[in-house]
Amino acid sequence: MLFLDAARDTPPELSASLRKRILADAVACTEAPPRPQMKAMGWRDWFSGWAAPGFAGGVTVAVVGFWIGVTMPMPVMALDAPEWLQGALGYLDLVAVQLIGVDDPLLMEF
């Protein structure tokens, strides 16, 4: 097809300015700082970031849980449901009796 021949004979040329821009990009890419590489974690790395606070929190929770479970400190023994919860449970009793005829909805065997 002669139209194609004509187009092939008149191709656009790479201008000096475009060549310069392309090579400037290439130089900029070679001069860019190297990307950080992944490396194997050392034992110090395990305690970096949130690892140390997380670990400390876990230890604290374990110790406190053990202390509560074994010694049952006084503040916990004295713990009782607050008044608002007592009121709520009483209201639940009233509703449950009406609905299912049971006066012990929580099956606490009063």
């Binding site: 187009a7 191709p11 656009p12 040329e13 790479l14 475009l18 060549r19 392309i22 090579l23 290439a26 130089v27 070679t30």
Partner: peptide
Amino acid sequence: RRAAEALTELIAPRILRFAAR
């Protein structure tokens, strides 16, 4: 960087022709 120059001479004119058309 000389490799970049060679690649530019090799590839860029063809890409320019293609994109222009």
